[in-house]
Design a protein around this nucleic acid. Structure first.
Length: 791
DNA sequence: AAAGCGGTACTTTTT
DNA sequence: GTACCGCTTT
């Protein structure tokens, strides 16, 4: 072990071997931060610390996975397995499951993601009959989230004079009420959102000293990665757990804090000094990643920030090329200029396309870039977008899983009760909802005994509801009897989801089908990938319940990683992503696009110094991703929200030191000018300071373009037959003329075969598979089907 | 039940 | 420009 210390420079070595007492490591970009963390863990193990006594907290699953793998390669892999290493959320979700009853939650509580949460909030706003412009779900959520991250409970929120005044002044006096109802509903559903995982951990550690003591003993060595990104709630958990022996090591870089908008608090770095006066500070200042010009240009940028910890990042790498700055006429030119540039560099230097990254401030910018890359036939990979687990079809299946595991889960219940359609529509659901709200019972409870609660359902609805309840109960009985994959298969088959997506031939359905297949193979992998862990009996089997716990805190990136490992051919592609997504990554050639005022820095952030400094740190992060060459591009005009707008070059371009910058002539362009925290108390003060969102002070200069001439003539699609387009009369049919297998003709969908019939009289419905349009459910009252042939 | 229409709003987002 | 929502029509 001692010889691996040779891989480290002096301050890195100190950061690794100073194991006892509080340690803070300020790690400049590219200075080997991850290396220090992994070596420190390996070092602790090598001096005899038991792996289960080490708690290592990261912000992403990816970071924790990488760290675990790297530790495993340095030392005994079996030891690496029993480390407490993971994201804040996953580690404390695990802890909460073990201790849930203490805070009145069942241990099978559901974790709501942002999507579920938004649905719930939207429903509450609607129920309260509030205007969803004043109370936009996104705003309400961010307000609640900020409160929770600063440990302000519902009670504290509603009792606090200043917060109340603020809300009244901004004419949103009901925020406190919404917060209160939201928390009630989560609890009723036995659900926690992401912020609750941390909030409730704080409650647990505050109210149960014996629990706190237990975990203080267990986690005798604590490491925290990306400390600059911790919020108050996370900060306090760490502080409490470390209070006993203070063997705590935090690693971060204040210059790379780019998540303050989500509640991260750089103050936590500065507070470290106060909390642990005898702490040791190590600064990693040697950059191993970038050229001198890049490092110096980046230093020059960050020097414009007032809030920072002094450090001098330097490198012994070659001087390299100056940072390039290029001006183009518009976003199309920008895209094609940089695309041909990438093409020529890779051709000249025989580089794989994976050496290049194109970064942008907002996802919307990717389109023009993608188009240019496609035109040039350059392979690329785009990061971000809709997460696998967020896709509708995947969420639908997962909602069944959630309901099986936790029938109290209201969001899941509402999501699946009529999917696939089983005649339990809006009317039935609102009846159930009103009973549930009136009696305070869960929807599930009411659905199980509709008669007892006088839900007022018709016999038909009652029958269907009973079928549905029985179906879910049946799955529930199997939860611990069959493995996750088998149960998943049963759910797909017996609920009709499989039929719903698989009999339909439309392109969209094929896509959805593939995603469902992917989910299934995920289940299969999960049940078969039983790692050789200690204490396994032949009975051991991985259940759906475990699967859901596993994926609850996974994100898009994690799924992609997995897929990538399977497919492999992604190595030769240009990477496109937001700067946020690029954090922690490095590329030989980096293009930073859209360096324009109001875009980067974002118009939303130019109102306050704090927010502007965050944008600047973002620019710093972008620059320091580059190993060999960083190129900054901007456009004179950009098509935004359907309008052309004129753009000013970003102020960050002016801040680039000319000594390290090369202003290239773009396509036909001229040059540019050049305290002791008493638990929940302190959060209140911090929260108030935050106040409400800043109003933008400046409007982008915009001209309204005369609308471009509509490119398509008024359409005359072939499928858009009018009744008089040579078709015979479509008479209204009565259901009894149809049977399974009847061939029918539809005005728009053409010919098809009846595969199902339901309902009678007014609401008779037929399920028809059309040759060209796939499966449709049609209300016969409107569909005007014509019988072509029987049988 | 599903499609079509018109109005509206829009950053970043590890969990 | 487009994605999304709610309302209307079939």
């Amino acid at each position: 072990m001692t010889d691996i210390l040779k891989d480290l420079n002096k301050p890195q070595q100190q950061a690794v071997t100073t194991t006892d007492g509080p340690v803070m490591v300020i790690a400049g970009a590219g200075s080997g931060k991850t290396r220090v963390l992994t070596y420190r863990v390996a070092y602790l193990l090598s001096i005899g610390i038991a792996p289960y006594n080490i708690l290592a907290l990261t912000f992403t699953n990816k970071a924790s996975r990488e760290m675990r793998e790297r530790v495993a390669s340095l030392i005994d892999p079996s030891k690496a397995k029993s480390l407490w290493m993971g994201t804040f959320h996953s580690i404390f979700a695990r802890l909460l499951r073990a201790e849930a009853p203490k805070i009145d939650y069942p241990s099978n509580f559901t974790i709501y993601d942002t999507d579920d949460t938004k649905r719930l909030i939207r429903n509450i706003i609607k129920e309260q009959q509030l205007d969803d412009k004043t109370y936009s779900p996104a705003y309400v959520l961010s307000r609640i989230s900020h409160a929770k991250n600063n440990l302000i409970s519902v009670e504290a929120y509603n009792e606090d004079f200043e917060i109340q005044t603020q809300d009244i002044q901004s004419r949103k006096p009901k925020l406190g009420l919404l917060y209160s109802i939201y928390q009630q509903r989560l609890r009723k559903a036995s659900a926690m959102d992401f912020d609750d995982l941390l909030f409730n951990t704080n409650v647990l550690l505050r109210d149960f000293p014996e629990v706190l003591y237990k975990y203080q003993q267990r986690f005798s060595y604590i490491l925290v990665d990306e400390y600059q990104d911790t919020n108050y709630s996370q900060y306090l958990i760490v502080k409490k757990l470390a209070a006993n022996n203070e063997n705590i090591c935090v690693v971060g870089d204040d210059a790379q804090s780019i998540y303050a908008f989500r509640g991260a608090n750089i103050q936590n770095i500065l507070n470290f000094k106060k909390d642990y006066p005898e702490y040791k500070l190590f600064k990693l200042e040697q950059n191993y990643r970038s050229t001198q010009h890049i490092v110096n240009a980046a230093n020059g940028i960050i020097a414009n920030n007032k809030d920072q910890i002094f450090k001098k990042v330097w490198t012994s790498n070659e001087a390299g090329e100056k940072v390039h700055v290029v001006k183009t006429a518009n976003e199309g030119d920008e895209a094609s200029w940089l695309t041909s540039r990438i093409f020529s560099i890779q051709a000249n230097d025989q580089l794989p396309y994976s050496s290049f990254a194109i970064l942008y401030r907002t996802n919307a910018q990717s389109r023009a870039l993608e188009e240019a890359l496609r035109r040039m036939n350059i392979p690329y990979r785009i990061f971000g977008g809709i997460s696998f687990y967020q896709r509708k079809e995947v969420k639908d299946v997962l909602a069944y899983f959630r309901l099986i595991i936790n029938p109290m889960d209201e969001d899941a219940f509402l999501r699946v009760i009529n999917f696939p359609a089983r005649g339990l529509g809006q009317t039935t659901v609102s009846k159930l909802l009103s009973v549930a709200n009136d009696t305070g019972k869960s929807l599930w409870e009411v659905a199980c005994n509709p008669t007892d609660y006088n839900a007022g359902l018709h016999a038909g609805a009652r029958g269907k509801l009973e079928q549905f309840v029985t179906l879910i109960k049946g799955f529930g009985a199997l939860l611990f009897k069959v493995n996750a994959f088998e149960l998943g298969e049963k759910v797909l088959n017996l609920t009709g989801i499989r039929r719903f997506y698989f009999e339909d031939g439309s392109a969209e359905s094929i896509n959805r089908r593939e995603n469902i297949e992917e989910l299934l193979s995920g289940l299969k992998e999960f049940v078969s990938a039983r790692p050789e862990e200690e204490g396994e009996t032949e009975h051991s089997m991985r259940t759906l319940d475990e699967f859901m716990q596993d994926i609850a805190l996974l994100t898009d990136v994690d799924v992609k990683e997995k897929r990538q490992n399977n497919t492999s051919d992604d190595s030769n592609k240009v990477s496109l992503m937001t700067i946020h997504a690029a954090k922690g990554l490095e590329f030989p050639y980096v293009f930073i696009t859209g360096a324009e005022e109001n875009l980067f820095p974002s118009i939303m952030s130019i109102g306050s110094r704090e927010e502007l400094e965050e944008e600047r740190r973002l620019f710093y992060v972008a620059l320091t991703r580059a190993m060999k060459l960083a190129t900054v591009t901007y456009a004179e005009t950009r098509f935004k929200y359907g309008n052309f707008s004129f753009c000013e070059p970003s102020r960050f371009i002016d801040e680039l030191d000319p000594e390290h910058t090369n202003f290239l002539a773009g396509p036909g362009m001229k040059k540019v000018q050049t305290k002791t925290i008493d638990d929940f108390g302190n959060g209140l003060a911090r929260f108030k300071k935050l106040g409400h969102a800043n109003q933008p002070t400046k409007k982008p200069e915009q001209i309204t373009s005369q609308k471009l001439v509509n490119q398509h003539p008024p359409h005359q699609t072939k499928n858009n037959l009018t009744p008089d387009a040579g078709q015979t009369d479509f008479s209204i049919l009565t259901p009894d003329m149809l049977q399974i297998n009847t061939m029918v003709q539809h005005q728009r969908f053409g010919t098809g075969t009846v595969v199902g019939l339901e309902g009678g009289a007014q609401n008779a419905k037929a399920t028809v598979v059309f040759k060209n349009f796939g499966k449709k459910q049609l209300l016969l009252k409107f569909a005007r089907l014509k019988v072509i042939s029987q049988q």
